Structures are given as C-alpha cells and as structure tokens.
Simulated assay, not measured.
Amino acid sequence: MSKALRLSEKWFRFGLWLVAFVFASFLIGLGGTVVANLPKVEHRYELDDFIDKPAAEKLRTELRALQEKRQVAQDAHDQAQLKVNAARANSGAARDTFNSWLSTRHATQRPEQDRELIERTQALEELKILERKALADVERQQQHLLDARQAEARAQRDLHELEKDASEKLNVELRHQELRVFGYRLLLTLPLLGAAGWLFAKKRHSTWWPFVWGFIYFALFAFFVELVPYLPSYGGYVRYVVGIVITVLVGRYAIIALNRYLEKQKQAEAMPDVERRKELSYDTALARLAKKVCPGCERPVDLANAAIDYCPHCGICLFDRCGKCNERKSAFARFCHACGAAGQGEG
C-alpha cells in the first residue's frame, strides 16, 4: 500500500509505527517490572522452614562439638606420631652405634669392656621401651581419632536425614508456589490478551491505531515471553495441550475469517461494476493495482497488456477512456493523466 500513499503520508505512517513500537516498549518494560515482582508476593521458602528445628539445632551443635573434638584428636595424633618418629630415630641411631661398638668388641676381645657392654645394652633397651610407649600412644590417639570421626559421621547422617525430609517438603511447597505465581501471571496476561483481541478486531484501523498496535505487541510479548515459558510442564503434557488448544483456536479463527472473506468476495463480484468500484476506496484500489492484482478480486492481472480493459476473473472495469481526450486511463483514477479532466473514478 505504500506505493499508493503520498510522500508525506508515508513519513507520517513511518513515524506513527515508531510511536507504536516505542509505546509497546514502555508497556513491555512496565509489564516486565510488574511480573518480576510477582514472586515477592509469596514468602521465600527455605530449608529451615520445613526442618525439625529443635532436632536439627541439637544435631548441628553436637556436630560442631564433634568436629572440634575430632580436630583435637587429629592434633594429638600428629604430635604422637612425631614422638614415635623421634623415638624410632633415636633407637635406630643407638642400635647402629651399639652394633658398630659390638663389632669392635668382638675384634679386640677385651674383658674390661664387659661392663660397658652391659651399660650399652641397657641404654638400648631403654630406648626401645620409649619407642614402644610412643607407638602405644599413637595407637591410642588413632583410636580416639577414629571414634571422633565415626561419631561425626553418625551426626552428619542424622542431620542429612532431617534435611532430606525437609528438602522433599520444600520441593512440594515450591511447586505449589510456582503454580500460584503462574496463576498470578495468568490473571495478569489473559485480560491483556482479551483486550488486545478486541482492539485488533474493532480498533486496528481507527484514528488511534498506533496505540492499538503498541498494546497488541505488548500483550503478545506478555503472553509468549512472560507466560508461556513458565507453563508447568508435568512431563510436557500441559505445554503440548496448551499448544494444541492455541493452534485450534487460531486455526479456527483463520478458517472462519477466510470463509467470511471468500463469501464477501462472492457477494461483491455479483454486484454491478459501478457499485463495486464505489465500494473500493481510492487508496485500496491504487495499492492493489501497484501489486498488479485486480482491485476487485485480488487475482493477478497483466496490467501492462493494453488489450485488457476488464478483469478476466471477475469482470470489473480496470481501464476506460477519458471523456474529454479519449485517452486510455485507469478506471479508478480521479483525473485523466493526459488532460487532467475529472474521470469517472472521482469521488
């Protein structure tokens, strides 16, 4: 239709479409803010809202104490292990020294060294005793550490069971909350869709059409962006069913609209030629001619063929002769392009 419009009218229409899109963008921003704040209407549930708080607090306190006890046992075990290592090192060094001295004693066979042999043997035995005591202390600390770890693990398991039960209750409540928030979205979006449908049917060609189309775009955005992605799935059943319902409704509307259009076209084509051309607006006729289709039935016509004056499909007059200069011109033209005389298409 743009080819049939005046230059200034094209720019005005372009500007009005910009108004429609800007209006829609502000509405979308406002709607997005409202929708984003919808979850705040509901309480933000957490795990502690569903757990047995006295039992959980008792277990957490016990767990903290056991963790501290386990850390103390770990530190004591590490210290005992260091003492064992030191005792083993002392005992090993003394044993090596004793073996070296004993080898020398066998080589010299000096009786006066028997007393020293006894003293060295006793000193070595004392080091072995210290090593065994240190090892026993390590084993005792290992037992304490194992007990602390097992007690901590039991407390962790008990707390995990409490949290597991609470998590199941939390998930159930979150699903219910999700459905409620979706209901809020639905209550907000459906009236917008209804209003947009009414505006599309009744007001899209009115004087205020930029605001009408801006609101329609906003409603469509609210439906497809703010509502559809949040449809509860239930394994895909809900979304597929909603898709089927929407497809059926849109398809039904399209089929009814198509049949209504075809019936209207049949009635129009049955009217006399003069009345049919009066029913067509000037801009509509020029827009269809610019697309090389018949203004009456919208079927393709070879308008460049000078032999064609009537539509071969519906019989409407496409070209006639100027009453003043007899020049061939469009039957829908208001003035003759050759002499400027008013044509039959005027009015």
Rank of each mutant, 00 (worst) to 15 (best):
A306Y: 08
R239T: 14
Q113C: 01
N99T: 08
C297V: 04
I118Q: 11
V238S: 05
E131I: 01
L127Y: 05
Q79F: 07
A73N: 08
E116Q: 13
N90Q: 14
H77I: 05
F319H: 14
A270N: 08
V84E: 07
R6Q: 09
A219R: 01
G296H: 09
E327D: 10
W198G: 04
D158E: 15
D114V: 09
R277T: 05
G251V: 12
A93F: 06
Y237D: 06
K128M: 10
Q267W: 04
Y310A: 09
R260P: 04
G315D: 06
S2V: 13
R260D: 13
L190F: 10
S330H: 10
G31R: 00
P229D: 02
G347K: 12
Q177E: 04
I255E: 09
L63T: 07
L258K: 12
A290L: 04
L66Q: 14
I28Y: 01
L117R: 11
H176W: 07
R204F: 04
C311P: 08
F218Y: 09
Q109Y: 05
A94G: 06
S233L: 06
L66P: 02
F50A: 00
F221I: 07
E327S: 15
D147I: 10
V250H: 09
L135N: 12
S25A: 15
R277D: 03
N171C: 00
A65Q: 12
F200Y: 12
T104M: 08
Y217V: 13
F200W: 12
G32I: 00
H205W: 07
E226S: 00
G347H: 10
A304P: 02
N259A: 11
T33P: 02
G31T: 00
N90S: 12
Q122H: 10
L186K: 03
C297Y: 06
F223R: 05
C325F: 11
I28W: 02
T189I: 13
F211A: 07
A55E: 13
Q177A: 08
V138F: 00
R157N: 11
Q156M: 09
E9H: 14
V212Y: 05
A80Y: 04
E269M: 11
Y234M: 08
V293M: 07
A36Y: 02
F224P: 03
A270S: 12
A93W: 06
H337L: 08
I216A: 09
E168F: 01
N305W: 07
K278L: 11
F319E: 10
L159Q: 05
F14W: 12
I244F: 15
F21N: 06
A254Q: 13
L145E: 13
G345E: 09
G31W: 00
D165Q: 12
R204V: 04
A270I: 03
G92K: 04
A86G: 03
Y184F: 10
V248I: 15
T61Y: 06
R299F: 06
K58H: 05
Y45R: 14
Q71D: 14
L188H: 04
D273S: 11
G29Q: 01
L117G: 07
E42V: 02
E178L: 04
L102Y: 11
V242G: 10
G343M: 15
R334E: 13
R105P: 01
W101E: 04
E173C: 01
Q143G: 11
K202R: 15
Q79C: 01
Q143H: 08
L18K: 00
L258W: 13
T61N: 11
F332A: 05
N305Q: 08
Q141F: 09
V22L: 12
Q177L: 03
A307S: 15
S281F: 03
